[in-house]
């Protein structure tokens, strides 16, 4: 193993500073007493109070949580089944279909957003379904979450020791019992980190939400975007700081669930 030289260390520390500059700046300004502009006028926590009395922000937070929980729940179910099926069973044209299933991971989000906007619009005109709102956003989020959940679950399945299931079968367990007593508990950490990943993706999504939302289904990222367009207010900095904290907690959750060897051996 090579040791890090001073130039490499210094460069890397500067790059870390660069990556964290925006996050730290938002956090600092959420405590800035100045209402306008970016000049520092002293420390205050009043913007957090303003935020918690901001009717619009509270409703957006509620929408965001409903959207993230509902979409993550359905996507976890569908994605887990997909990951399980793809890692277990063969079917004709499997390789091709499996590749297609990962398109949502790589497709630029603007493309998915406008395709869905158009699809919902045409469906509404033709059949009277898919009125833009929270439900259309949930469907949209599920669509990109499924693939991510499946990737995580499949990675977990690949690392599983098949001897455990074989042993259970040899000892007389039927298929149902093997699944619920052996396979599912082994898959569970993968399912949980897939669910957390899906939840975080939904919390962070702006582009897809922006195009598939209707009146009254504003989420926090959409609220932040419209405030940025109108001129940022300090309570939005407070909101962003809280969202960053939520992301940090979720990352910590996902990291804690990941088996160590994923980083070091594989």
């Amino acid at each position: 193993m090579k040791r890090n030289g001073p130039i490499l260390s210094l460069t890397s520390i500067l790059l870390y500073c660069f990556m964290y500059t925006p996050i730290v700046v938002v956090a600092i300004f959420s405590f800035n007493a100045s209402k306008y502009g970016v000049a520092w006028k002293g420390f205050t926590t009043k913007w957090y109070g303003v935020l918690f009395n901001n009717e619009q922000a509270l409703r957006a937070a509620e929408n965001t949580l409903i959207l993230a929980s509902a979409s993550a729940a359905i996507a976890t179910l569908l994605g887990t089944l997909l990951g399980y099926g793809l890692s277990r069973y063969w079917f004709p044209r499997k390789k091709f279909v499996a590749t297609l299933m990962y398109v949502p991971v790589v497709i630029p989000d603007i493309l998915m957003a406008v395709a869905l906007l158009m699809f919902y619009g045409l469906m509404r005109d033709a059949l009277g379904i898919f009125e833009l709102g929270l439900s259309t956003m949930i469907f949209a989020h599920i669509t990109f979450q499924i693939a991510f959940v499946a990737v995580v679950v499949k990675a977990r399945m690949v690392g599983m020791d098949p001897a455990l299931e074989e042993a259970a079968r040899d000892l007389g367990a039927n298929r149902w019992n093997v699944f619920w007593r052996i396979t599912f508990p082994l898959m569970f950490p993968g399912i949980m980190s897939g669910a957390l990943l899906a939840f975080t993706l939904s919390l962070d999504d702006f582009v897809v939400s922006f195009f598939t939302s209707g009146p009254g289904s504003t989420t926090l990222p959409i609220l932040i975007y419209s405030s940025v367009k109108r001129g940022i207010t300090p309570d939005i900095n407070a909101l962003s700081t809280l969202m960053v904290c939520a992301s940090v907690l979720l990352v910590a959750g996902v990291t804690a669930l990941q088996p160590r060897k994923n980083y070091h051996e594989k």
Binding site: L81, G85, M112, A115, I146, A147
Partner: peptide, 28 residues
């Protein structure tokens, strides 16, 4: 048998992604 089981496990996700991604993309 494997194909049938694939339909029961991967099937719903494949149908979902087709309806909400591939059909809209073909629409584009």
């Amino acid at each position: 048998d494997q194909t049938l089981r694939s339909l029961r496990t991967s099937g719903p996700a494949i149908v979902w992604t087709t309806l909400f991604l591939f059909v809209p993309l073909l629409g584009i």
